[in-house]
C-alpha cells in the first residue's frame, strides 16, 4: 500500500514537474520573443532615424557667388530696359 502510494506520488510528482517545466519554457519563449521583437524594432527605428537625418552639407572650397535680383516688375516688357 505504502509502495503503491509512493509510486503514485512519484508519477504525479513527475507529471507536475513536467508541467512546471513546460510552463517555464513557455514563459521563457514568450520573453525571448518579446526581447527579440523589441530589439528588431529598435534596430529598424534606428535605421529610419538615421535615414531622416539630413546629410550635412560638405563644402569643398570657398565660393564667389553672384546673385542678380529683381522685384516688382509687374510684367512690364517696356519701359523696363
Amino acid at each position: 500500500m505504502s509502495d503503491e502510494r509512493t509510486d503514485q506520488e512519484a508519477k504525479e510528482e513527475a507529471r507536475a514537474s513536467e508541467a512546471r517545466r513546460e510552463i517555464w519554457l513557455s514563459i521563457g519563449a514568450f520573453f525571448l520573443y518579446l526581447i527579440l521583437g523589441f530589439a528588431l524594432m529598435m534596430w529598424l527605428n534606428a535605421r529610419r532615424e538615421a535615414a531622416m537625418i539630413p546629410t550635412a552639407p560638405v563644402a569643398q572650397k570657398p565660393i564667389a557667388l553672384t546673385i542678380l535680383h529683381t522685384n516688382d516688375t509687374w510684367g512690364y516688357l517696356e519701359p523696363c530696359g
Binding site: A64, T66, I67, L68, H69, N71, D72, T73, G75
Partner: peptide, 13 residues
C-alpha cells in the same frame, strides 16, 4: 561670374 543665381522677389507677373 563663376556661379550666378537670378532671382525675383515677387510681383513679377
Amino acid at each position: 561670374a563663376d556661379y550666378l543665381l537670378l532671382l525675383d522677389a515677387g510681383n513679377a507677373w
